[in-house]
Amino acid sequence: MSHKSALRPRYLKLHAVLVFAFLFLPIGVLVFFSFNNARSGTDFTGFSTKWYSDLIHNHQALQAFRNTLKVAIAATVIATVIGTLASFALTRFKFRGRSAYSTLIFVSLVMPEVVMGVSLLAFYANIAHMKLGLTTVILAHTTFCIAFVVVVVNARLASFDNRLVEAAADLGATPIQTFLRVVLPLAAPGIAAGAMLAFTISLDDVVITFFTSGPGSTTLPLYIFSSLKFGVSPSINALSTFVLVFSLFLLALGGLFSARSAKRGVTAVDVNALG
């Protein structure tokens, strides 16, 4: 039947290839220049791997990279849990104050970064009396990540069929079983997508991180931003290339993840059939 499809796979595939090319074009540039002989991002003077060996001695960059990972992982996990729970409540229950919630979520999306950074710093320093460090950065990142998770999971759960839950209950499932075996598998792609978004925006943030970080909690974007004056150093390109290769390696392992989520899909369909 697919030959009749409104969106032909052949054209779609071509489009997909082009979009992927667009997405990876700047990545290609940075990988290319990570092997540049000179400390220049514009003229390729010769092949060299010296930036990779330099990287091992660039403690500041490596420390910043470790901080970035700590912050992004912590913020993603917390925001995904909090955001997913909130999304279940928002999509499944009618209650007063729901629109106030939506408002807050959009406020956190629209609040200019500088404003969020300054106001969070004022809160930490003058109200909460917290010492600036990784914790304050993680709290800040989680705050703006939650909204992204909620919006994406909501999109997945919109027009959620409550009959599935009722059916599960009729079959004697406890609420927790229902949640784990019916609701969660249905929402899983949305949750995964939300978590990925949260992870990437946490990984990228400069402005809010600047205001909320203290001694020793410089993240990689902050480190790069402050060294941008003289252009991105090839050793940062080398580090990015390393991260890229590492994530591609993880992606290869991701086949495993695919298989597991396919299984979960089957669970959902089973319950569906029962309903």
């Binding site: 697919s2 499809s5 969106l7 796979p9 779609l12 595939k13 489009h15 997909a16 992927f20 997405l23 990876f24 700047p26 990545i27 940075l30 991002g41 997508a193 990925m196 992870f199 990437t200 990984l203 990228d204 400069v206 990689l220 974007p221 790069i224 931003f225 941008l228 252009g231 991105v232 940062i236 390109n237 990015s240 991260v243 890229l244 994530s247 591609l248 992606l251 991701g254 086949g255 993840f257 695919s258 989520s261 396919a262």
Partner: peptide, 30 residues
């Protein structure tokens, strides 16, 4: 395309969308 024709590589394609974003925003802009 990913959702309907990605087959068992759907998750792989999806992660491929995100991978460029694992390098810092500033470097990509640069």
């Amino acid at each position: 395309w990913i959702a309907r024709f990605g087959g068992r590589f759907r998750n792989v394609y999806l992660v491929l969308v995100v991978i460029p974003f694992l390098t810092s925003y500033l470097i990509r802009i640069y």
